[in-house]
């Protein structure tokens, strides 16, 4: 299992955007969800997660809202903005093209 930093540059953004596509989530849940969905392959560490979340928020792709969480405490929930949705589409397309290309090379040999 690779270290979280090994995530391809820029992929973390894609993962975050994709993860919160369906419902607003807080940071811990996002990390957890990525871990679960990837069958424990991808582990996002806080040192990468929070800077990424805040950067996406500064850029206007996602927005944050403080709300009561399932534990009854206040937590910061991130959700996609309209621009973030479009960004997700673009990045998904990019990813598909890139991974297909890499696959081609890797399987060719």
């Amino acid at each position: 299992m690779g270290k979280p930093n090994d995530l391809v540059q820029g992929t973390l953004d894609l993962l975050i955007l994709k993860t919160i596509l369906l419902e607003p989530m807080h940071g811990w849940a996002i990390a957890k969800r990525i871990q679960q969905v990837s069958c424990e392959v991808l582990q996002v560490q806080q040192g990468s997660l929070y800077p990424a979340l805040h950067r996406l928020e500064q850029q206007g792709w996602i927005k944050a809202k403080w709300a009561e969480s399932e534990t009854g405490r206040q937590a910061k929930f991130y959700s996609l903005t309209a621009a973030g949705r479009r960004q997700l589409e673009t990045e998904t397309a990019n990813w598909n093209r890139l991974s297909a290309a890499i696959n081609l090379i890797v399987t060719e040999a």
Partner: peptide, 16 residues
Amino acid sequence: ARLDAELRDHLERQIA
């Protein structure tokens, strides 16, 4: 302050 709260929240969830 919110960033601190956010990080603390994360830590507490992990502990839990």
